[in-house]
Design a protein around this nucleic acid. Sequence first.
DNA 1: TAGTGAGAGGTTTTT
DNA 2: CCTCTCACTA
Length: 671
Amino acid sequence: MKKYTLKKSFAAEIGKYTIDYKAELNQQQFKAVTNIHGPQLVIAGAGSGKTRTLIFRVAFLVENNINPGSILLLTFTRKSAQEMMRRASFILDERCSKVAGGTFHSFANYMLRKYAPMVQYHPNFSIVDRGDAEDIINSIRAELALNKKERRFPRKTTIMNIISKSTNKCIPVEDVLIDDYPHFEEELDDVLKISNLYRKYKRQKQVMDYDDLLVNLGNLLKENEQVREKISDTYRYIMVDEYQDTNKLQAEIAALLACKHSNIMVVGDDSQSIYSFRGANFRNIMDFPSMFPDTTITTLEQNYRSTRPILELTNAIIENAREKYSKKLFSDIAGQEKPAYLKTIDETEQAEFIGQRVLELREEGVPLNKIAVLFRASWHANELEVELKNRNIPYVKYGGLKFAEAAHIKDVLSFMRVLNNPFDDIAWLRSLTLLEGIGPSYANKIVAEILKKSEDFSGLIAPQFAKKKFFADLQKLYKLLSSLKDPTLKPADQLEKVIIYYTPMFELLYDDYRRRTGDLDSLLRIAQRYKTLEEMLTDVVLEPPDMSQVGVESTNKDDEKLVLSTIHSAKGLEWHSVFIIHLVEGYFPSARSAEREENMEEERRLFYVAATRAQRNLYLVTPEIEPRSWGYHDDFSGYMFAEPCRFLTEIENFNELTEPWALEIEKEDPF
DNA sequence: TAGTGAGAGGTTTTT
DNA sequence: CCTCTCACTA
């Protein structure tokens, strides 16, 4: 007979756990992991095992027989939440994947789908992305006839920025406008008017923008005691990652969620706060203990990522920050190579250097996907991309244009959106203007008819349009949409029909349609993952699939690719070798940040984030001649002599901390 | 009123 | 450089 012992589910002593936490973690990490009650703040320096700590804490909670569904892990991207849950499952077991996790936005979405009526919304509200929100603003502006004015009136993007900043920082629109855009002070009344109409519009049309998700979740929690307590009871163990990048609103939500138990752990690094343009405030992390008076504070200072020479440089970078920090990272990883610093003649030579060096590194045994090139803004990599293509070096690029923001994708999705929410008139407008002979003006008239009879789409074929040239097209669209209402159809089936319908206009509309067809196929593949249309549309906005995800068909072994990434998208990641390019005033720090000191402080933190991504090799590159960028008046044939990035020159012993590399051009043999 | 073409202006980072 | 706007034409 075989003996089989059922394990006792509650392990009272450390020795009884499946995982030997003491051996796996250092003292501070251990403390953070095993202290499971009460508020906790973990200040985790770059590479100090922050993610590891969170993962082990999830495992520890689960091993203590805590229902995974009562653990909430709020992270910066959903990808990182999933990755953490995957790793936790790996060190323990499947239970860890049942943890609730995601971004503040996706969590808000999840909650609001349940409780929408309590904040006066339909549960099937639509979420609009930034572009759509701006279009709404624009149409309101047009309605108020503010676009025809003699004086300069802020653009839709600017107006949206003002409104968004005001919500995220919880300060009035007036203050934002006067603080950040004093030159528009005269337009304050009209901006306020637009802002109010925008709010009304969204409610009427059952639409939320990114900020509304947070606002409405906040309101739900604030105004309904029972709901608040119920939710707080459900999520008894809350963890928030990257807390330095949360804004006021998110901090409030986190506190409300913990109202019943104060079991909340926040993790972050004030030196790595890089999202203030989105309303994030790194002081949140400092204020946490005052929000929860008995907070336990743990600081993780040992760096497990980078070699000592790299860490010495990164410490020196952050040393110059205006606000002084209490931690200083150290590393046990020896390394003889200092970070390399080199100047190239121009952008072309910079790209050549990287192309060549990347290939050498690969020869030395570093896989391509362990190498990254980081830059301040997406377009900084353009020239490099050309070089990589010439050399046949495969790469993926993160950051910059989103798949879901491409015009043809938005076109297709607009048909899907009206299926999901017939009040979504931005989507109606977009789809209708795709038809020949229909511009904004007729589109609006048709939308008005549709909204009158929102149960079906018969407004599309209202008799007053019968004599118009485009009536046949409307009938065709009506037939299509009506047939797609069939509840047995899955999103992918619906999408397929929409794409077939859309293809003729698509080919007419875009000269380069051949290049774009691939994207439609990708979208179709993505759609197959979803059971409901609403889920799919929400995901496309909240978690925009990036190009790399789209290229899933090439999941074989040799799809090792060099990583190109904006620094913002590189947050939380690490690579064996890292190149930081365009270390030139005006590029990095960006010219836009020069106006305000606090922006410059953030640029420095951004540079710190970039440099701390490197494990073994760090290459800093400054091209000496750059294409003229905005803000520089160097009428020298479009080029300027570049000033090296101030975050390098301000370091006193820079020359000792780095190894200068001098580029030599190979001499061609004349014979 | 739709569709087109020229000119100007503003250029980051992302849920 | 790329997008948005405005004015013109059909």
